[in-house]
Design a protein around this nucleic acid. Structure first.
Ligand SMILES: NC(=O)c1ccc[n+]([C@@H]2O[C@H](COP(=O)([O-])OP(=O)(O)OC[C@H]3O[C@@H](n4cnc5c(N)ncnc54)[C@H](O)[C@@H]3O)[C@@H](O)[C@H]2O)c1
Ligand SMILES: NC(=O)c1ccc[n+]([C@@H]2O[C@H](COP(=O)([O-])OP(=O)(O)OC[C@H]3O[C@@H](n4cnc5c(N)ncnc54)[C@H](O)[C@@H]3O)[C@@H](O)[C@H]2O)c1
Lengths: 216, 216
DNA sequence: AAGAAGTCGTTAAATGTTTCACATAGTAAG
DNA sequence: CTTACTATGTGAAACATTTAACGACTTCTT
């Protein structure tokens, strides 16, 4: 299935959820049509880029009119598989893990943290944000067919846990630890390194001067 | 100052903090030298890319030898301004904000959350992770000369707070809310949209098949 | 001391992404 | 129906980033 979708540039694919969320907002506001220019201002992506992104999926708009919100939304729903919910496991119910559990990724999305694991007996058996916390020793037993994991354990435990998750059948890991984990080539890992993001911002601030502010 | 640093590609600049952290680790382990190949395996960046990245700063290594860890470290310390600490303000001490305050960004870094603000009276006056929480009404009074802000308020408050931060003299914002905020061109904003990251991972998982695993 | 092995720094090629600019096809209005 | 407008979809150019390949120099080995 989805033979030709492989050709969609990764940069485009990363923007799709962003588009989806905004189109969803428009729809709940009762808006009927939208132009690439309007979208551009809202999501801060060049309008030509938006048109190009959409064009990979065919002609979604009408010349001289723009895009029909309803049509766009139902298209994205299909494309991003918004109908089926992807269940996610969270490993490490510490500061960051707790924040994620309390935040409801469901609000706009098709993802749901279904189960959480921790090594600390004090946390096991509790419920955080409506999600049960299980002991990490029960990982294999309780994981079910969940295929995506959010990793928020201490970095020293990251590689070990990654190995175990892979062994247990996980296909994708969202890794928040600073450790760059190694996994088989069949497993997808995205790293979100918050300390690096903050440092990079500071570096840009100091070394890449921006235009002077124009008073508005 | 730093006239020619402007030429360093953004993609390279984003990787610098990552390199720095790993070189720091090597140094505390007492390692004396390292090759681009070793670095590559550790940080998961192609070795040619690492050599290219380093080369923007001149000849940091020696042919046939690799890089001297001590030398590399002291170079990065200078380049990334690791000597001076950049002070940061955090706006919105909720789930995510609390996690950031409890996490010590200082451990490896040159950034420190110095002060936090919230609108909720119940939080004001408390201390989270050693950082005082002030009332948002006192923002202008208490901000001092902090120039970087982490924004973790509800998305409905994001644009309003961004406007106020800019007015108060902030030059860079790390925005964790889903709202794409608008700021004057003199202010730098990085968006980290965790829900989008999770959805993008799921999209890649479903639409971009990876190679079959090879048993090791 | 000479040859083998290793690794950088860089030139050039390949690949990926964004942006410009406009013909085109459709809308809107009289 | 005709005219004026509007905003798409895309070819081509510009820009950015990654990767391959290798000459030059260093270190290591014998
Ligand atoms: N909190 C932040 O703001 C922040 C920022 C940047 C990076 N990080 C990274 O995110 C990760 C988590 O950070 P945190 O602040 O939530 O840490 P934390 O110490 O608060 O939480 C870690 C949790 O993992 C659990 N744990 C430890 N070993 C485990 C194992 N083998 N299996 C399962 N659970 C285990 C602990 O019991 C604890 O509850 C760390 O790697 C940290 O470097 C956090
Ligand atoms: N928690 C997560 O895992 C997560 C994930 C993705 C995105 N986000 C985004 O991050 C932001 C924060 O999320 P959260 O879960 O921490 O929310 P939260 O509701 O727990 O925290 C928000 C905090 O901001 C404070 N606040 C509200 N208005 C304010 C104002 N005008 N000035 C100062 N403080 C104000 C509130 O009192 C509260 O303490 C939200 O925009 C959310 O969409 C959070």
């Amino acid at each position: 299935m989805d033979i030709e979708q492989t050709k969609i540039p990764q940069a485009t694919a990363k923007r799709l959820p962003l588009y989806y969320r905004f189109i969803n907002n428009l729809h709940s506001q009762g808006k009927l049509r939208v132009s690439s220019k309007e979208l551009s201002e809202a999501v801060k992506v060049d309008s030509a880029t938006i048109r190009r992104d959409f064009s990979y999926f065919g002609a979604l708009g009408k010349k001289g009119y723009g895009y029909n919100v309803e049509h766009l939304l139902s298209f994205f729903r299909k494309t991003l598989d918004q109908d089926e919910v992807t269940e996610v496991a969270l490993i490490g119910v510490g500061n960051l893990g707790t924040a994620f559990l309390n935040y409801n990724f469901m609000k706009n999305n098709n993802t749901r943290i279904k189960i959480a694991f921790d090594a600390d007996q004090k946390r096991v058996g509790t419920e955080v944000g409506g999600v049960d916390v299980e002991h990490i020793d029960d990982l294999e037993k309780k994981l079910g067919n969940v295929s995506v994991a959010i990793l928020t354990v201490p970095s020293s435990a990251a590689q070990g846990m990654a190995d175990r998750l892979v062994e247990a059948g996980i296909s994708a890991i969202l890794n928040f630890t600073p450790a760059r984990i190694t996994v088989p080539s069949s497993v997808r890992v995205h790293h979100i390194d918050l300390a690096v993001e903050l440092q990079a911002l500071v570096y840009f601030l100091k070394h890449y001067p921006l235009e002077e502010a124009e008073e508005e």
